[in-house]
Amino acid sequence: MASMDDMLKSMSKSVTLTTGTANLGDSQIEHKAMIRAIWRPRPKRRWLAGRIFFLLTLLSTLIGLISLIFLLESILGQGWERVSWEFVSSFPSRIASRAGIKAALVGSLYLTGLVASIAIPLGVGAAVYLEEFAADTRLRRIIDVNIANLAGVPSIVYGMLGLMVFVRICALGHSLLAGACTMSLLILPVIIVTAREALKTVPMGVRLAALGLGATRWQTVRAHVLPTAMPGILTGVILSLSRAVGETAPLLMIGALSYMAFVPESPMDDFTVLPIQIFNWSARPQDEFRVAAAAGILVLLGVLLTVNACAIFARMRFQRKMQW
């Protein structure tokens, strides 16, 4: 720390200093004001403030970690013993100990497949169109804002839309197809947004190089831009699919059943999915059903982890191919 003496010494020098623009008379008065000034850095207090700040941020991080551990622990503790082949392969039952998730699991997988085949082509197509072909017009900007907004609309509102449009107007009934269409609507904005982000990261040079070789715009996109953006697009797609797997509210709206004693066989059949089964069981007062719910959650998380693992694997393969 500078001692007072040092400070005064250096201050007194400043009186003789002439800066290019300074008016000497004024600055002398100011320097006197500065000499009188005392610096009180209070290092202890600031050090303490820093410690407290550090602890606060650490604490908030721990909240996240601890709640995750707590959550997994409670679910594992309750549900682990219930997970068995029998649990996976039997239908729900009024007797808690015999209830299983066969119908729900199959319904979930079926639904995911349908959603993927509807939402991926539509979403990626829309993203490519908006990013590569659409002119920068007023309309496009409105669509941009619109899509960003749609991604934030509560899922239950999509459920209401699905209920009206697919169940009632298109008369699809409470069918798998209606559910899949609703879910696709829900995740489309997410797919479009992430796919566009991925396309944006493709360097302009790639495009210009291909166009310079006489390729058409479409050829350029297909042969160069899409493959380059693939890892990013895939990540977005998978993440949104896993959201579809875990989403409950819209399906509740369009009337997925909570009790099903058969496996859906065609897209027009009634169906149920895992999250709804879990919701139904959790809401019951009996402890046995809670246990079943925990087991169902375990299976659901297992499915989600598998899907995400697939995503990471696919992304790695694509990235390896990309390293030319």
Partner: peptide
């Protein structure tokens, strides 16, 4: 944490 379905959080709250 962000990927856990919301229904699971509901279960967590209740139990």
């Amino acid at each position: 944490l962000a990927g856990i379905p919301t229904v699971v959080y509901g279960y967590f709250a209740l139990t």
